[in-house]
Simulated scan of single mutants.
Amino acid sequence: MSAEARLAELGITLPAVPAPAGAYVPALVSGSLVFTAGQLPFVSGELPATGKVGAGDGLVSADEAKAYARLSAINALAAARSVLGSLDRVTRVVKVVGFVASDPSFTGQPGVINGASELLGEVFGAEIGAHARSAVGVAVLPLDSPVEVELILEFA
């Protein structure tokens, strides 16, 4: 099944790609690779939550952050589609880089970024969707977002 058909089957509509907030582009092609800029979990132009990920009052839970990583990956796919025309051109998800704004005691970054990785497997299938990955804890992300995700995709 094609990636575009799979998105429809999953009920996922890719959002419009917002204008960059700085001196960069949302995605660019180099050779047979698409590199996306880091994408936040925007929904209709708004962040659904802000703050650090961890356990405790005032912190974003790991489960919530996993859902935000999925949203960030959806936004990254929208950026990739904006330069490719169709995600059916993707032949391999090469790498996912995920950043988690983490409370100093939080060590569950890989579980959070699974939200992005699992989405890519659902959309592209096990073979094309399997990828290398980094899941990094950071002190703060732009706009106080709890997560940020970037992709490297190969295409034909």
Rank of each mutant, 00 (worst) to 15 (best):
E46M: 09
S105W: 07
A49D: 05
D144T: 09
G115I: 06
L120S: 13
V147N: 03
V53P: 10
P26I: 12
A156S: 11
V43G: 03
V94P: 02
L47K: 04
P48F: 05
L40Q: 01
S72C: 03
R89S: 05
P18R: 05
G56T: 05
G22F: 00
V90N: 03
V90D: 05
A19S: 15
V96P: 02
G115F: 10
Q109E: 03
L77G: 03
A80I: 12
V97D: 14
E148M: 12
L47S: 02
L71K: 09
Q39A: 00
I12L: 10
V97T: 05
K52Q: 15
D57Y: 14
P142E: 07
P15D: 03
N75C: 06
I12V: 12
P41Q: 14
R81L: 09
F106L: 00
L47H: 07
A3L: 10
I113H: 07
V97I: 04
G108W: 04
T107A: 00
A132C: 01
V149K: 01
S86F: 01
P104G: 08
P15A: 05
R81F: 04
G54W: 00
V96G: 01
G45S: 13
V29Y: 04
V138E: 15
T107P: 02
S117V: 14
P15T: 15
D63G: 06
F42V: 00
L10I: 11
A3S: 11
L143M: 11
A5E: 05
A132Q: 09
G11R: 06
F99D: 13
A73N: 08
V123E: 10
R92Y: 09
A80E: 05
T36K: 15
K66H: 13
E9M: 13
S30Q: 15
L47P: 05
L77Y: 08
G111K: 02
E64N: 08
P41F: 01
A132M: 00
A5M: 01
F124R: 14
A67L: 12
A101N: 12
V100W: 06
L14W: 07
F42P: 00
L77S: 09
E118S: 04
A76Y: 10
F155P: 01
V60P: 07
T13W: 07
S117P: 00
L33F: 11
T36P: 02
F99G: 12
V123F: 14
E154R: 15
L153I: 08
S44L: 04
A16L: 01
A78M: 03
V60E: 10
A5Q: 11
Y24L: 14
Y68S: 09
V90R: 07
G111L: 09
G121A: 08
L141G: 11
A55D: 11
F42S: 00
G11L: 08
D88C: 06
Y68E: 06
P15K: 11
E127T: 15
K52D: 09
A126C: 02
D63L: 03
E148C: 14
G137H: 05
G51I: 04
F99M: 13
G85V: 13
T50D: 06
A55V: 11
E4W: 11
V112S: 14
S105Q: 10
G56Y: 04
L87I: 08
